[in-house]
Nucleic acid binder design. Sequence first.
DNA 1: CATGAATGAGGGTTCATTCAT
DNA 2: TATGAATGAACCCTCATTCAT
Lengths: 209, 209, 209, 209
Amino acid sequence: MPREVRERQMLDAAVEVFARRGYRAASMDEIAELAGASKPLVYLYLNSKEELFSACIRREAESLIQEIQAGVEPGDSAERRLWCGLRAFFAHTAEHPDGWAVLSCQARIHGEPFALVVAELRQRIVDLVTRLIAECAQPDGGRKPLSAREVSGLAHALVGAAESLAGWANHRTGAVPSARETAATLMNMAWVGLENLTGGRRWPPAAAV
Amino acid sequence: MPREVRERQMLDAAVEVFARRGYRAASMDEIAELAGASKPLVYLYLNSKEELFSACIRREAESLIQEIQAGVEPGDSAERRLWCGLRAFFAHTAEHPDGWAVLSCQARIHGEPFALVVAELRQRIVDLVTRLIAECAQPDGGRKPLSAREVSGLAHALVGAAESLAGWANHRTGAVPSARETAATLMNMAWVGLENLTGGRRWPPAAAV
Amino acid sequence: MPREVRERQMLDAAVEVFARRGYRAASMDEIAELAGASKPLVYLYLNSKEELFSACIRREAESLIQEIQAGVEPGDSAERRLWCGLRAFFAHTAEHPDGWAVLSCQARIHGEPFALVVAELRQRIVDLVTRLIAECAQPDGGRKPLSAREVSGLAHALVGAAESLAGWANHRTGAVPSARETAATLMNMAWVGLENLTGGRRWPPAAAV
Amino acid sequence: MPREVRERQMLDAAVEVFARRGYRAASMDEIAELAGASKPLVYLYLNSKEELFSACIRREAESLIQEIQAGVEPGDSAERRLWCGLRAFFAHTAEHPDGWAVLSCQARIHGEPFALVVAELRQRIVDLVTRLIAECAQPDGGRKPLSAREVSGLAHALVGAAESLAGWANHRTGAVPSARETAATLMNMAWVGLENLTGGRRWPPAAAV
DNA sequence: CATGAATGAGGGTTCATTCAT
DNA sequence: TATGAATGAACCCTCATTCAT
C-alpha cells in the first residue's frame, strides 16, 4: 500500500481517536489499530504523538478554513458574506464532526507543546470574522466609531456562538438541524445588532440601564 | 487542622492544577504537593482523581451559577435580567480564572467517566438562558412563534458567545476589559436580534437571500 | 524497609547487572527484579537509568580510590608507595569484581551522556599515578629530565597494565593469584624501568636500535 | 556495484558507527545509511547485526595482527622484536582509530553472544607477547625460572599497557605522539624489568619489602 | 490524623528483522 | 541485484492507588 494512502488512513484514525478521547487520553496503540497498521509504522510516518496531533489539527483547520473561504464571494455585501460563511462553516462541521471535535475540544489546551499551533489556527478563523466586521463597521454618521477592541470582542463572541452552535447541532438528539437552519439561527440573533453597530448605534438606547 | 479547611485547600490546589494541565495531564502528586498535604490524605478525603475532579467541577459551577442568580432580579424585564446576568457571569469568570478554565476547557470532554457531570452543569447554565429567552418569546402579533428548537439554538449561541468572550477577556494582553464592558459587547451584538425575535421578526427580511 | 537500605540494594543489583550486560544491554526490569523491588521504586529513588548508572560509577570509583589512598603511607618512598598502592588496587578489584567490571568495561564509552563522569573518575586514578611518577622523576645527574608528556604516557601505561592485570587475575581459571602476587608481577615488569628513568637513564642504551 | 566493494563499504560504515556508539547503541539504520545502501541489502550480505559486528572485529583484528607480524623479523633478538612489534602496533592503531576503538572498547564485553569472538582475538595478541617473553625467559643462572603463570601475567600487563597507551596517544589533545615515541615510552618502562626477569632477577631485591 | 514505602498497569518510542516486488 | 513497506518485541518511564505504621 502506497505511503500516501496509509498516511491518510492514519490521520483519519488519529482524528477519530483524538476526538473521542482527547489528546492525553488517546493512545497510539488505539490509533494504530484503528488505522489498520502497526504502531512502528505510525511512528515511521508521523514521528511522534505530538507531531501526529499537530498534523491532525493542521489538516482539519486547513480544510475548514478553505471551505469557508470557498463559500464566500469576495465582492458580496458583508451581510451576504457572513451568511454564506456561516453556512459553509456549519456544513463542514456537520460533515466532519470528528475533525471539528478535535479542533474545538482541544482549542484551549494549555501547557502542551503544540498549544501554539492550535491557538494560531483558531486565531486565523477569528481573523476572518474580525476583518469582516471591521470592514463594514464604518459608521456613516457622527456617532462614535467601533474601537479595535470592540471589534475584536465582537469577533470572539460571534466565533464562540458559532462554535457552540456547531456542537449543539452535532450532538442534538432527534432531527439534526441543517446547516442553513443553524446559520439562520445565528444570523437571527446577531445580524441586526452588528448592522446597528455599523451605523454607530449601540446598546443600550440611552436610559435603559 | 480541621477537615473542612484541608479539603478546601485540596480543592483549591486541584482547580489550579487542572486548569494549568487539563484533567489527564494533571498529576495527583502535584495536586497534593500544592495543597501541602500527603497523597494518602487526598485520597482519604476525596477518594479518587475522578471524584476530585467532579468535586472541583461541581464547586466551581455551583459558585458560578449562584453568583449569576444572585445578580438577577426575578421581577425585572428580560432585557435587564440578561444584562445583569451577563455582568455577573463575566465578573465571576474574571475573578476565578482557574475555576472558569476548568469548567470551559474540559467542558466538552468525551470518553472520560465524569463527562456527564460536566455536561450536566453546562446544561444548567444553558437552561437559565433558555428560560429567559423562552419566557419573553411570546410574539404579540400573528407572526410565526419561536419553536423550542429555535429557542434552544439561540440559548446555545448566546452561551457560546459568552464563554468565548470570557476567555477573550481573561487572556487579553494589555488592559483587561471590565465585566461591564464585556457584557455590553455581547448585548450590543445580540440583544436587538433577540428582541426582534420576541416579536416574531426574523432574519432575513424577506427577499434578502 | 528504610530507604537507605533499599537504595543500597538497588545499587548493588545495578552494579551486578551493568557488569554482566553493559550499560545499554542492562534493563531496568532486570535490575529491579534482582534488587527485589518494583521498577517504579527504583525510579522513585534513583530517577533514571542514566542517574542510576552514574551513581554506580561514582560509588565504585570512590570506594576504589579511597582504598588505594588508605593503603599508601604519604611519607614512604615512591617505590614503597607504588607497591602498596598496587596491592590495595588488586585487593579491591578482586573483592569487588562487578564494581571493577563496571568501571573498566564502560571506561571508554563514547556518546553516552555520562561519559564525562566515567572519564573523570578514570582520570583521578591516572592522576594518582602521575603524581607518584612525577614526584620521584627528578634526575639527579645531568641527563635530560622527564617531560610532562613522558610522565603522562608512563602513567597511562602503568594504569593500563594494572587494569589488564586486574582483569587477568579476576578471570583466571584455576588458582586465583593473590593481590600480592599480581602486584609483584607489575613491579617486576615496571619498577626497574621507572627507577632508571628517575635517574634520567632511558631505553635504549645508545646504539641498540 | 560488485558485491565485494559493497561489502567493504558496509564494514567500513559499521566500524565507524560501532566505534562512535558502541555495539548496542549502534543502529542498523545508521550503518546502512552511512554505507549508502538499503537495510535489506546489509542483511542480505551480512545476515545480522551480530554477524556484522563479528565481521568487523575479525577484519580489524586480523589487520592489526598481520601488521604487527609484518613488522617483526623472526630472527631478531627479543628486545628488537618487541620494539618493532610495538612500533607496528602503535602505528596501526593510530592509522585506524575507529577499528582500534571497536576492538578495545568492546574488548571486555560480557553477555553478548559474540563475546567469545572478541575474547579470542584479544587472546591471539596476548599469545604473541606471551611467546616472546617465554622464549627469552630462560634464566641462564641458577635462579628460579619464570613460571607459566608469571609469564602470562607479564604478557597481560604488557598488552594492557600498550592498549592504554594507544588510547592515550589517540585521544591526546595537542601534538600527537608518534608511534616511535609511544613505543619508546613503553620500552622505557618495561624493558629493563623484562630483561632482568630473563635472568631470574626479580623485584624486590631481597629486603626491600 | 498523617505519611513513608511500595506497585500494577499502561503509554510512548525504538530497533532488528523480513517480505513482496 | 536492490528496496519500500511493514512489524513483534522490548525498553524506559509515569501514574493512580494502597498499605503498614
